[in-house]
Amino acid sequence: MTDDDPLELARRIAQSYRGKGGPIGTGQGSTPRRRSRPVQPSRGKNEDPSTIADLLGRVVQQQGWAEKLDDQRIFTDWERIVGSEVAQHAQVDGFEDTIVHVRATSTAWATQLKLLAPRIVAKLNEALGDGTVTRIDVRGPQAPSWKNGPRSIRGARGPRDTYG
């Protein structure tokens, strides 16, 4: 067979990929060259595989978001901290400067929550860390607005103008 034989060329290529043959351009008489393995760089400790949770934890710590995320637990853990019955009738509207703003479903529940406020503050501080919450601002249900709507009149005084 000649060097121009395509089948022989394919065999030599396959053998060179398997590491059994010499370079493709050389003939049968050449000495086979050892294939060197590529040098892999040593991986540092920071380049080891890690979970996404670990990575996000490091980002949160580096950016200084840990305290803000802990404060958000008031919203996510509200039902677990205060109980399902209270959580059914009271929802957290906001949290700023250690004050939790709570909206009650009725004025009776707003009164009840104002009486329970010291206990709820103690439970929140126990769950979230001492000093996280200093006060609870309880608000009753939002009254309907008579200023907007299809039958509102500019400058009117609300429902008083329609009944009389």
Rank of each mutant, 00 (worst) to 15 (best):
G155N: 05
R139W: 01
S152G: 01
R119A: 14
P118V: 04
P144E: 11
K123G: 01
S152D: 06
D130P: 03
R135L: 11
R139V: 10
E126N: 13
T132Q: 13
W146P: 00
P118W: 00
L113H: 07
I120D: 02
I120W: 04
R139Y: 08
R157P: 04
S145V: 02
T111A: 12
P150L: 03
S145T: 08
P141W: 02
G129T: 02
K147F: 09
P141Q: 05
R151L: 12
P150N: 04
T111W: 05
G140W: 02
K147W: 09
D137F: 08
D137M: 13
T134R: 15
P118G: 02
L115D: 03
L113N: 04
L116R: 11
Q112S: 09
R157G: 06
G149E: 03
P141A: 07
W146E: 04
L128M: 09
A117S: 15
G140I: 06
G155W: 08
I153A: 06
W146C: 00
A117H: 07
L116E: 12
K123R: 14
G131W: 04
A143R: 14
T134Q: 14
P144L: 08
A122W: 00
R119D: 15
N125I: 06
P141K: 05
A122H: 08
R139K: 14
R135W: 06
D130V: 08
L115Q: 14
L116F: 02
K114L: 03
L116C: 01
L128Q: 05
I120A: 04
W146I: 00
I136V: 15
N125W: 04
R157Q: 12
R139M: 11
K123S: 14
P150I: 02
N125D: 15
T111R: 09
A127H: 10
V138W: 03
L116N: 03
S145P: 00
T132H: 11
G129Q: 02
T111Q: 13
L115V: 10
G158N: 01
A156G: 09
R154E: 13
P150K: 10
V138S: 02
I120Y: 02
S152Q: 13
S152H: 13
L124C: 12
Q142K: 14
A143F: 06
V121G: 08
Q112G: 06
R139P: 03
Q112E: 15
V133E: 10
Q112A: 13
A117I: 07
S145R: 08
K123I: 00
P144R: 13
R151Y: 15
G140A: 10
P144H: 06
L124F: 07
E126S: 15
R135C: 07
A143I: 06
Q142P: 07
V138I: 15
A117F: 06
A156N: 13
P150S: 04
S152K: 13
G158C: 04
A143Y: 05
P144G: 00
K123T: 01
I153G: 00
S145Y: 02
A143E: 11
D130E: 15
S152N: 08
S152M: 12
N125V: 05
P144C: 00
L124Q: 01
N125C: 11
T134W: 04
Q112L: 12
D137Q: 14
A156D: 14
T111E: 10
S145C: 03
K114R: 15
T111K: 07
T111I: 08
T111G: 07
Q142T: 12
D137P: 00
G158A: 03
G129M: 01
P141C: 05
R139H: 11
N148R: 13
L124N: 03
N125T: 09
R139L: 09
I153Q: 09
A117M: 09
T132L: 07
